[in-house]
Each structure stands twice: as structure tokens, then as C-alpha cells.
């Protein structure tokens, strides 16, 4: 009965794996709910600031912010890649990175230079590995995204835009549709197009305190940051639900493997018993 001990060890090891995946599934499920709440909590701000930005883009003729001006020649492109810090979340990062790499290849074919800013460990190490021009990055965000930790990474790109080093800025992240479905999307951040902002309900000009430029500058910066923050919050909700689904299917798979192994184990055990009995019977027949 040489095989049965090995099979028993194997069953034990798969059972242990299943315990881990099951635990991860439950952790992800509870984190997912919180991540979704956070994602929703960030929406009012984004909505409000979008409204203000829309008003400003219509209301203020004497000072046009550079973020609102379209550039005629687009030679350099900035891309913010939002990924997760940890793996084991199905095809989440792979799909998002595939979308961005395909897009980057198209840009490259058009002769545009690309610089990347990476949020999240997976995207950063991938971009680094394949040799993209990574301008800035932030990793280790944890479960709760904080705008504070994103400011530096975003500012590098915004500064580059203002300095004319990049002419367009995109963000690529995984959009949360529902628990079972997440979709990688590419969104243009800069320059802000009119359709993106939408048209305001009613027209009026503001009183600017102390004056228009610093206020508009601050507002535009906050607006872009809120968009990126939103992308990160949404990506985190996607990450957790994607992980939950992946871990659930891993647990199910482990269960199946255990079932199969048990069948093989029982067969081997039965065969061994049958063999023993026939040996005894054979022995007894020889003696008598």
C-alpha cells in the first residue's frame, strides 16, 4: 500500500490550501463592502467639483486654465496606471495592463512618447520590468486610499503637463460595475474636454476671492486629483470583489480536487484489502 500514504499527504495539503483560499475569500468579501462604501463616499465630492469646474469653464473668459486648452500637436502622452498592490485577484491587473499596453503601442506607432505614472505595486513592477518610462510611482496604499499619499504622484504628471513635457494625460484603471463584473477603462484627464464636464445648469459668473487665477488653479488641481482618487477607490473595490471571486473559485477547485483524490485513495485502499484477503485465502489453501 505504497501509494495511499502519499495520497493522504496530498489530500491534507490540498485541504490546507483550501482553508487559506476560503479565509482569503471571506476577508475579501468583508473588505469589498467597505471598499464599495468608500467608492460611493467619494462620489459627491467628484460630482460637486465637476459642477464647479463646468461653471468655471463657461463663466470665466479672462483667464483660461491650461488644463482646459487643447493642444494642436500631441507629441508626448502621460499615462497614470492604477493597479492593485497585491496579486491573487484573478485577471484584474492583467486585463488593465493589457489595455494600457495595447494603447501605448498604438501611441508609439503614431510617434508619440509616453511617460507612465504607476499607482499600485503590480502596475509599477510590470511597467518597470518591460522598460516603460516611469516618472513617478506610489506603492503600498493599503486598504484605505488616502488622497494625501496620491498627491505627489499626480503632481509630477500635472507639473509635466504644465511644463509642456506631456500634452495629454490619461488614466487607466479597473471600473467597478458589480461584484461579478469589472472592466478596465482608459479615461482622458487632460486636457479637460467640454463634454466631460457637461454644461452647467444656468450661467453666472463668480466673484473670485482673492482673484481668479489662484482659485481656478487650485480648483483644477483638486478636480484632477479627485478624478484620480476616484479611479483608485474604484480600483480597490474592483480588486476586492475580483479577489473574492477568484478565491471562491479556487476554494471550489480545491474541493473538487479533494473529492477526486479521496476517490483514488479509497480505490487504492480497497485494492490493497482485496489483495491481502486473496493472499490470506491463497496461503490458507496452500497450508491445508
Amino acid at each position: 500500500m505504497a501509494g495511499s500514504k502519499e495520497i493522504r499527504t496530498k489530500i491534507k495539503s490540498v485541504e490546507n490550501t483550501r482553508k487559506i483560499t476560503k479565509a482569503m475569500e471571506m476577508v475579501a468579501a468583508s473588505k469589498m463592502r467597505k471598499a464599495q462604501d468608500r467608492m460611493r463616499a467619494s462620489r459627491p465630492y467628484a460630482e460637486k467639483i465637476r459642477n464647479v469646474a463646468a461653471h468655471l469653464s463657461f463663466a470665466n473668459p479672462e483667464y483660461k486654465h491650461p488644463y482646459l486648452l487643447k493642444r494642436d500637436v500631441v507629441k508626448n502622452i502621460g499615462l497614470i496606471v492604477v493597479s492593485s498592490d497585491k496579486g491573487l485577484c484573478g485577471g484584474l491587473n492583467t486585463n488593465m495592463l493589457r489595455l494600457s499596453v495595447n494603447q501605448m503601442k498604438n501611441w508609439e506607432a503614431e510617434g508619440k512618447a509616453i511617460s507612465v505614472s504607476a499607482i499600485g505595486n503590480k502596475g509599477f513592477s510590470f511597467m518597470n520590468r518591460v522598460g516603460a518610462n516611469v516618472k513617478s510611482h506610489i506603492i503600498g496604499l493599503g486598504d484605505v486610499p488616502h488622497l494625501e499619499s496620491l498627491i505627489g504622484t499626480i503632481k509630477v504628471m500635472l507639473d509635466a503637463y504644465e511644463a509642456g513635457e506631456i500634452d495629454q494625460l490619461y488614466v487607466c484603471y479597473t471600473k467597478f460595475i458589480n461584484t461579478m463584473k469589472q472592466e478596465p477603462v482608459m479615461q482622458q484627464l487632460l486636457p479637460l474636454s467640454g463634454e466631460q464636464l457637461g454644461s452647467p445648469k444656468g450661467h453666472w459668473d463668480y466673484i473670485y476671492e482673492p482673484e481668479a487665477k489662484p482659485v481656478v488653479d487650485q480648483l483644477m488641481m483638486r478636480y484632477i486629483e479627485s478624478l484620480v482618487y476616484n479611479a483608485v477607490a474604484e480600483n480597490m473595490a474592483s480588486e476586492q470583489s475580483s479577489r473574492m471571486v477568484a478565491m471562491k473559485s479556487a476554494s471550489d477547485n480545491a474541493k473538487e480536487v479533494i473529492g477526486d483524490l479521496k476517490l483514488v485513495y479509497n480505490k487504492a485502499r480497497q485494492a490493497a484489502i482485496t489483495k491481502e484477503i486473496s493472499e490470506i485465502v491463497g496461503g490458507a489453501a496452500a497450508v491445508s
Binding site: 504607476a118 516618472k135 498627491i151 505627489g152 504622484t153 503632481k155 509630477v156 507639473d159
Partner: peptide, 9 residues
């Protein structure tokens, strides 16, 4: 913060 992010990259 921007300088930090840049230098790290």
C-alpha cells in the same frame, strides 16, 4: 511630495 515620488521612481 512630488519630488519624493519622482526620486523614488
Amino acid at each position: 511630495k512630488a519630488i519624493m515620488a519622482k526620486e523614488a521612481a
